[in-house]
Each structure stands twice: as C-alpha cells, then as structure tokens.
Write a protein that binds this DNA or RNA. Sequence first.
DNA 1: GCGACAG
DNA 2: ATCTTGTCGC
Length: 222
Amino acid sequence: MMVAGSHPWNVSVQDASAIQKGLRSGLVLEDDFGEIGTVAGFDVSFSRERDLLHAAVVIIDAGTLEVLETVSASAEPTFPYVPGLLSFREGPVVELAYGKLEIRPDLLMFDGQGIAHPRGLGLASHMGLLLDRPSIGCAKSRLIGEFKEPKQKRGAMRTLSIQRKKVGVVLRSKDNTKPLFVSPGHRISVESAAEWVLRTGKGYRLPEPTRLAHIAAGRAKR
DNA sequence: GCGACAG
DNA sequence: ATCTTGTCGC
C-alpha cells in the first residue's frame, strides 16, 4: 500500500490536479476510528486589503460541545481560488494553524467538500489524508453531484451522487434553511459523516465546529 | 460555444 | 471569500 507523504503546495494549477488524482487512492471511506472525544472545526477568511488568508481551528468536546481550544494562523495566498482546487489555496494556512494545536482532535470538520469532488479529493479529504485524521466535508453549497431537494425539517437528507455513486448527502441541518452538502473526507463513512454533523449542531445551520471556526477566522482579521 | 463552478 | 443596512420570517 502506498503511504501518503507530504507534497509541495506551491505548484502549478496543472500539477495540482495531478496531485489530487495521485492521492485519492489513499482514502479510506469507512469508519476507521475509536471513541471520538474531540472534534475540530476549520475555516479560512480573507483580508483583501492586506492580502492575507486567516485560518482558524476550534476544538470542542464531542459530548458537551464545549470549546476546548482555539488557534489561528495567517499567510499570504500562494494559489488562486479555482473551483476544484480549493485545498491548494487554503491548505498551507490550515496546516500552519493545525500545527499550533495542543490537543490532537479525533475528528476534523471542514468548510468544503470531502469526496464530493471532480477528482474525489476535496479540501476535507485532502487535509484528512495529510493530517492522517478522520475528516468530514461540510459545505454550504454544491460543487458537483446530483440530488433531490430534502424535506424542510431538520435531519432530512437526500443522497448526493456522482454518476450513480453515492458520495455524500444533502442535509437539512435546520428547519427551512438551505441544506448542507456533507461528504466523507477520510476514514469515515457517508452515514457517520452526516451523523456527526447533526450530532455537533446546536440549532444553527452550521455545526458548532465549523460555525465557531468561521467566527474565529473572521475575528482573526482584526 | 455555453453554463456550472467548495471558499 | 469579500463589498454591506435594513428587513422579512420563524
């Protein structure tokens, strides 16, 4: 079995796509974890006046949803935003912030796609592989995939598929609000991914990990 | 050629 | 992502 090592982030748009194709075979799409005690949420904001990316990571207790740790890091963007290549723009800052953590989270949640991606390796999958951690992609909108509108009640979900293959779910995390696009990143199944998004929610559209990371990332700009 | 297109 | 106040609805 090929073991995933590190790879350069400063590559061309062409090479980035090739790197994704090479990494996808290393993904584990079934539950591969023990007891989940902590969940980390990631998000990145952008300050255009200073041309800086700010990444924030918030770790919460999986049982009480209480915040245990918050860290952030900043860096100049080295890659443009290209649909399908988001990890090459946000990956560097995310790794930087992750390195500042004292707690080693049991599960990672990202504001983006997992395997619901053109080459099967969205931000959550990519980071889950590099950090060797179970990860979930929890995006606010669709990148790729077909689905039917889920019912309006919290907890309702429909399959998100790519060429007849189930790659995730379109999940209603709150009554009468736009659904979330949840797909496994690495070392977790579609079912468990959806379950954890619901389990870490507090009544807001976004689950606590990602919601709090979003606030922290925005706060990091000031 | 045209439309779609995570953050 | 970001530029941005109020406003309608649960």
